[in-house]
Design a protein around this nucleic acid. Structure first.
Lengths: 189, 189, 189, 189
DNA sequence: CATGAATGAGGCTTCATTCAT
DNA sequence: CATGAATGAAGCCTCATTCAT
């Protein structure tokens, strides 16, 4: 692809970088492989970005937007009760894990740049879940505590999906059942 | 360090490798940096191990032992009810996560050698938890399902501890409370 | 040397590689020593060639050309009877042996890449000599048989020149006499 | 093999080294692979030989004996006319080439140690052939010149056998015919 | 804007050699 | 006599980065 494109914008690089992030994690967001994917040269990348780190930052910035803000908007757009939204969120997010295996590598990465992006995303997500739980009638501190647990369960689930998928339900139906169990557990009094 | 030691055994290398694994993940288990850490030369490493892969395998083998078998023995040695053991397991394991941030990088790694070690460890752990839950009165399939959830929660918790520790309880006391909540949730009927 | 040259082409590398091949055989056609010879860095070599094998292939390709095709062209360009051309070929080829001791190491090398280049060169040379012998009146099978003998004699001569030069005639005059003897023997009925 | 042998002599090393020389040339006469073949350790080799060079020298010394002196004795032992002996020599020697492919690597080697052994062997062989030719009625200088050609042809033949065997006769019968042609040519007036 | 060329750090691997035991 | 352990030089390769054009 992109054989016809003669001039590339920084944005094209970020898009390709996001793709690499989703597919193979932060380590894959490097100048060389992305240049190859775009049919460009390394030098070209260094024109748009001062360094690999700068590119990665730009990609993570975009990731924060699409990986969280967009999802939150989606979930809210369709309305419904807080519990229904919670369920929808879980469905979206666990399916994404399967199609985007690189995410889990992002969540557990050493690089400070990555970690700080992960912190932002985690905070947004935990806050969002906490808000839904408050909407479902929990007080602030209880909501926060349960939101953390919910997020931990999601992250762990993603991890297992990436490494030992055979331990997890393989049909969509069974996955939905598991999600409902999780939601029930989380909202149980 | 180690300036005084003249002779090194393969075991010394594995120990140093395990250290690197715990601190910085599988990528850090490499001949040259570990040689440097031991004050030895790379050639020496190649006396004990045919290749970097062989070293990594040896280190992972040891990891399987200390990270799981030893822990399981510890938990069982002290006796108590299945629920008490479950709580103790969670305590041991979440504390270890904080002191060994590299573990989380091990859990989500691309290298097939690493993945297969992770699979062994995961299976052992899930099986152990499932056995405890059966001991607590659950039937086999229910126990297995809950064990998977428990493990997902643990892994996610470890992930959060490694990346956003401030979202988690900082005192030992508060951590114990959270663990108790998890155990209660898992063993609730 | 080459301190002044700032930019190197792949061709420069091949030339330097051919030099190494002629002087010290295929084993000397390696990235690092040639980089040193060119006053460049190994990384630079890896820009032009994907691997050592690729460089060696390029060098051998050039060797096939200069060691055979060019010589055949030279011999044919000057015209003359087949027997005269045969004599000229022998002269060219034995002189080259003395200045390029590495050639003999190329002829007897284990590496499959090298062997296949040697096979091409041998076939071309034997075919060329056979054609000259057919031109001198021999039938196809007799020409082929004698061409093989001629080539064996050349190779053996090269070998002796490389290892025990004092057993061979040292003056150009005496070498020419020996060559004439060989040609006479080969074309005798 | 040699699993039962507890103590090795220097002679055992030389024998194993000669084997390696015949099979894979001088480069294979190295401490490490021969230790492996003998089921010993490198250090053991360094007890018997000061260095790899010393081992190689010992092996080449033995090679000079078995590769030449023994052959000459064989040829002479059976008696017959000089021409008959010449034919027998050629037969022995070309067959040896096929069973001992390493020989050709020995004949064309850079290492001065190897070259000087090759010089001794070549001189012995050329002298022996020259003596046979003198016995067949040629004067000293003519005999010497033809002996060199004969040896060149043999060496070249060995080379071709090692690299492009399909260019050479494959049946024993055809090889004998080619040898007779060579002898006839060499002894023709 | 982008390329092509080059650099250099870092890691892998082999092997002759050394040496304490 | 021999082993096991270690060294160091040499070569392979990758990749982030730099820079002249």
């Amino acid at each position: 692809m992109n054989v016809l494109r003669t001039r590339l914008t920084a944005d094209d690089w970020v898009t390709a970088g996001l793709d690499a992030l989703a597919r193979a994690g932060p380590d894959a967001v490097a100048i060389e492989p992305i240049a190859a994917a775009l049919g460009a040269t390394k030098g070209s990348g260094y024109w748009h970005f001062a360094s690999r780190a700068t590119l990665l930052e730009a990609v993570l910035e975009r990731w924060i937007a699409v990986a969280t803000v967009n999802i939150i908007d989606d979930v809210n757009a369709q309305g419904g009760s807080p519990v229904a939204r919670l369920e929808r969120l879980l469905a979206l997010v666990t399916d994404a894990t399967i199609t985007h295996p690189g995410v889990i590598l992002t969540l557990s990465h050493q690089d400070p740049i990555v970690r700080s992006a992960v912190q932002v995303v985690t905070a947004q997500r935990v806050d969002f879940v906490a808000a839904l739980l408050r909407g479902a009638g929990f007080n602030a501190s209880e909501a926060e505590r349960r939101a953390v647990l919910a997020y931990a369960a999601y992250v762990g689930y993603a991890q297992l999906a990436a490494t030992v998928p055979d331990k997890l339900p393989s049909t969509k139906r069974a996955r939905r059942a598991l999600q409902r169990t999780m939601v029930n557990t989380l909202t149980a009094r």
